[in-house]
């Protein structure tokens, strides 16, 4: 039971991260490595705010804004300083490593006995007597759902439509008299805001911050996006955001299943990679079929 809840919790938390990666990777076509820094950035901000004694709910907008700022920096480095996309992300990721240590104050910080978004008067009032883990999963579900709905809503606004257009065909955007650089910066901000929000929830679910939690975050995000969009390839917006979150849960589910089945932990990463490859290849086959046209 705890493992299933763990999969759901981690899957949905990384699902929020995956929503961010979806924006950069699928919509903007921007390989954004800022993610490895902005995920722990959200977590670092969170433990700092909580140890300062602020109400836990404040951490959610704070982490989103912090991550958005980091994303905006990546965007500015790329657009204004004309640094290549991959490098802009790497630069920001590297800078954030130090910033995260400063913000959190140490390589690891525990918040075991503090109020979190899962453990506070309000939540305990809404779910009286509920077991800790169920409560946690419920709260994560609500936040993930809300993030997804807000993102869906944003995508239907004018700004959101422009964002989608930049990724598909940026000449159209330029011909509309819109600065495509600005659109990219906005997209990166929202994406990293979401990633950082994921980090914020992760830190509270784990009741601790650890500097290395960002390592490989972008890979998990990409895997989730690709799994989600490949397995449910016929769906279109806004349901594509749901499939990204489901992809993330499936990804964590595979890891858990392998672990539960007693497969050597050392082999899990290899198995993940193989699984990842299989899904990619299957989805590519379908893409080459009738109608053709590689994307």
């Amino acid at each position: 039971m705890a493992l299933i809840l763990s999969v759901l919790e981690q899957g949905m938390i990384y699902g929020i991260l995956a929503l961010g990666v979806y924006i950069t990777y699928k919509i903007l076509d921007f390989p954004d490595l800022t993610v490895d820094g902005s995920f722990p950035f959200g977590a670092a901000l969170t433990v700092r705010l909580i140890t300062m004694g602020l109400p836990p709910v404040v951490t959610l907008p704070a982490a989103f804004l912090g991550g958005a700022l980091a994303g905006a920096c990546t965007g500015l480095i790329h657009v204004k300083l004309k640094v290549r996309d991959l490098l802009s992300g790497i630069i920001m990721m590297t800078a954030l490593y130090t910033i995260n240590l400063w913000v959190a104050g140490a390589g690891y910080v525990a918040i075991f006995n503090q109020d979190t978004i899962f453990e506070n008067g309000v939540v305990n009032g809404v779910f009286p007597g509920a077991a800790g883990r169920v409560k946690t999963a419920a709260v994560i579900f609500l936040i993930t759902l809300l993030s997804k709905l807000l993102l869906d809503w944003y995508m239907s606004t004018k700004s959101g439509l422009l964002l989608r257009a930049v990724g598909d065909n940026d000449t159209i955007v330029t011909s509309l008299g819109v600065d495509k650089g600005l659109v990219k910066i906005v997209g990166l901000s929202i994406a990293n805001g979401l990633v950082s929000l994921g980090g914020c929830i992760y830190a509270q679910q784990q009741r601790s911050f650890e500097i290395s939690i960002g390592t490989g975050a972008v890979v998990i995000g990409l895997a989730s996006v690709i799994m989600g969009t490949s397995l449910f390839r016929k769906v279109t917006a806004p349901r594509v955001t749901s499939s990204v979150v489901i992809g993330s849960v499936l990804y964590k589910g595979c890891v858990a299943l392998a672990m539960f089945a007693g497969i050597d932990a050392n082999a899990i990463k290899l198995i993940t990679a193989v699984l990842f490859l299989i899904i990619l290849v299957i989805s590519m086959d379908r893409r080459k079929n009738p109608g053709g046209g590689l994307t």
């Binding site: 493992l3 809840l5 990384y14 784990q206 650890e210 672990m259």
Partner: peptide, 10 residues
């Protein structure tokens, strides 16, 4: 750390 957390839950 994600794997570590899942290990404990397992």
């Amino acid at each position: 750390t994600g794997t570590s957390a899942m290990t404990a839950d397992n």
